[in-house]
Design a protein around this nucleic acid. Structure first.
Length: 221
DNA sequence: GGCCAGGACACCA
DNA sequence: TGGTGTCATGGC
């Protein structure tokens, strides 16, 4: 079976197993962006606490973050770890948003996908995964997000080798799948759920939906 | 009590 | 450009 069909096969099986995951778990595009920064190398559970704290303190908006002192912001997001670093990164993003788009996410997302991606990558603390999460999940742009789970699962199933770069993996999907926002959204969410619920604990667990994918790849699809 | 989590970056060779 | 250290909390 060719890679394109295998990728679609995995998608269908995971989608059937998990259903519509309705990502990203957030109440607004800005909350998606904040979550994307806070979840860098951090368990989502700890991010949820930090976001809840930001809401409690009425800090979860571009205008509030812009005027909030770094120390105060860091204190609010303490539970997400790396809190001083992430406070600086959030401030860097909102400064960018105000300097270039008058604080308007709508204006920012009106820009061309790849042009905006290039600008986001220039912001301190926004690397490829964070930028792509922002573009896909906050901006509804058709770009595939690659994370540690994606890499781990693809490696395990022999689609890539250890040396594959972020872009290699991203293009593996984007060159073979239709440029569809819902598909990219749901596919990445499915991979993260699979990684979290199964692969991290036991890669060969028979209850893992990828176990059946393994079987199908070996022949019966 | 150690390990790791939905990364990014600086520094060094 | 590739490897390594740093950033830090909280759950298992």
């Amino acid at each position: 079976m060719d890679t394109k069909r295998e990728l679609l096969s995995i998608y269908r099986k995971l989608d059937a197993f998990f259903g519509d995951l309705k990502w990203w778990p957030a109440d607004s595009p800005f909350e998606v962006i904040v979550g994307a920064v806070l979840t860098q190398n951090t368990a989502w559970r700890n991010v949820e606490k930090a976001i809840h704290e930001l809401k409690t303190r009425n800090l979860l908006s571009p205008e509030e973050l812009l005027i909030t002192e770094n120390e105060l912001l860091a204190d609010a997001i303490r539970s997400s770890g790396f809190y001083r670093l992430k406070a600086r990164r959030l401030k860097a993003f909102v400064r960018f948003l105000y300097e270039r788009y008058k604080g308007s996410l709508e204006e920012m997302f009106a820009e061309d996908l790849w042009q905006l991606r290039g600008k986001l990558l220039q912001i301190d603390g926004i690397g490829p995964e964070t930028a792509d999460s922002i573009l896909l999940y906050a901006g509804c742009k058709p770009i595939f997000v690659v994370d540690a789970y994606t890499r781990r699962i693809l490696l395990r199933h022999g689609f890539i080798n250890e040396k594959a770069s972020y872009t290699d993996i991203q293009m593996l999907f984007m060159k073979r799948l239709p440029r569809d926002v819902y598909l990219y959204n749901q596919y990445h969410a499915l991979l993260v759920n699979t990684g979290k619920l199964f692969c991290a604990k036991n890669p060969r667990c028979r209850s893992c939906p990828l176990y059946t994918v393994d079987m199908s790849i070996k022949g019966d699809l």
